[in-house]
């Protein structure tokens, strides 16, 4: 048992080495000094308190969306519609903020209502993909993809149409909300402790939900073997829908955070790719909730660190995306190699 664990760790470490090796080759091929690139990524993410809080600003949405995706993943679902769910969360939040911003309600209450609306918006959008899957037989990958495009178009339409800025609508988004409607920030920084608190709260909640409850057990049963779960009396349709709704609600909250704590308005690319990045995190942690936070933090550091690249080295900041993706790819491939070796050695060990 102990030996197996060390073997796993060895394969994962070798995946990390291979991923770094591949990225280094790409850097060399583009005639860049790899050490310079890596150095600036590290400097750009942890060299100062300000930069580290920026990493946390990127960590919060990634953590939230990944914890939601952990649920859909456990149910065996490829929730690629997550980008659209983030977007709809942001739209619903913006809608409620606009609706109530001139009312006499306390700002704190307005923010809370808006964020609840965001969760609801994400959950509704996810349940659309869920209904298409469970009642219409439409694979969630394609239903979700289609809905992603619709969500993006909806955002653009709102920004250039009904919610456009006074004068003319622009890609910079809707009119920013007054700072009474912002989630409170640490003064001098972009980080909101409320946002961070919510992220930490929900990953802990999901951890216990998946590990210690009947609900989590049944979700996992549905994901492992749908037919067997059904025959054993698990109402599979209901649990698939619940997984979609829970994942969608957390994606919606991610969108709500982006509106209330980061951009303070609706912008065209409000999801900022966190949905797809979250899918990578969920794949990498392989259903283990305990790893979501560290991996998400690592990915967020890469995101923020790579912002330095265009400024200092005239490189594109997508290098972080390459490194993140290649890392997941090699982990998947090395896991395959490991399984093949264990099969070869004949199950005797």
């Amino acid at each position: 048992m102990m030996k197996k664990r060390w073997l796993n760790l060895g394969f994962q470490l070798s995946a990390l080495v291979l991923a770094l090796g591949f990225t280094t080759l790409i850097l060399l091929a583009t005639k860049t000094d790899p050490w310079q690139a890596y150095k600036y990524i590290i400097i750009g993410s942890i060299s100062s308190l300000r930069k580290f809080t920026d990493v946390l600003v990127s960590f919060v949405p990634l953590l939230l969306v990944s914890s939601g995706l952990l649920v859909t993943f456990s149910a065996g679902l490829w929730n690629i519609g997550v980008e659209g769910q983030i977007t709809l969360g942001a739209i619903a939040t913006t809608w409620v903020l606009r609706l109530l911003q001139d009312s006499s309600l306390a700002p704190g209450l307005i923010i809370a209502l808006a964020m609840l609306a965001g969760m609801l918006g994400g959950a509704l959008w996810a349940s659309l993909a869920g209904a298409l899957k469970t009642y219409g037989g439409v694979n969630e990958i394609f239903g979700g993809l289609g809905l992603n495009f619709v969500a993006t178009a909806l955002t653009l339409w709102l920004i250039f149409g009904p919610w456009k800025r006074p004068g003319i609508g622009s890609m910079s988004g809707t009119e920013p909300f007054p700072n009474t409607l912002w989630l409170p920030m640490i003064s001098g920084f972009r980080l909101s402790l409320w946002g961070l608190g919510l992220g930490v709260f929900f990953i802990i909640l999901i951890y216990f939900l998946m590990k210690g409850t009947y609900f989590g057990l049944r979700i996992k049963a549905v994901g492992k073997n749908l037919k067997a779960a059904y025959l054993l009396g698990v109402p599979t349709t209901r649990y698939l829908m619940l997984a979609f709704i829970l994942g969608g609600a957390l994606a919606g909250l991610t969108g709500a955070i982006q509106v209330t704590a980061v951009y303070h308005r609706l912008i065209p690319s409000i999801s900022s790719g966190y949905g797809f990045l979250g899918l990578l995190v969920a794949m990498l942690v392989n259903f283990q909730a305990i790893w979501v936070a560290p991996i998400a933090l690592f990915f967020a550091a890469l995101n923020i660190g790579s912002i330095q690249l265009p400024i200092v080295l005239k490189l594109d900041s997508t290098l972080s995306g390459v490194l993140q993706g290649v890392l997941v790819l090699f982990v998947l491939l090395m896991d395959g190699v490991r399984q093949m070796i264990t099969r070869r050695s004949g199950g005797a060990s």
Binding site: T30, L315, G325, V326, L333, G336
Partner: peptide, 30 residues
Amino acid sequence: FGSVTLKQNQVAIGFVLALVCRDLAYFIGN
């Protein structure tokens, strides 16, 4: 290779490649 030889999930491999190739295109194409 990932799906036939290593018998890993095709959706997982393909999805990751979709993201990696996109970012590689932007990075190398700069």
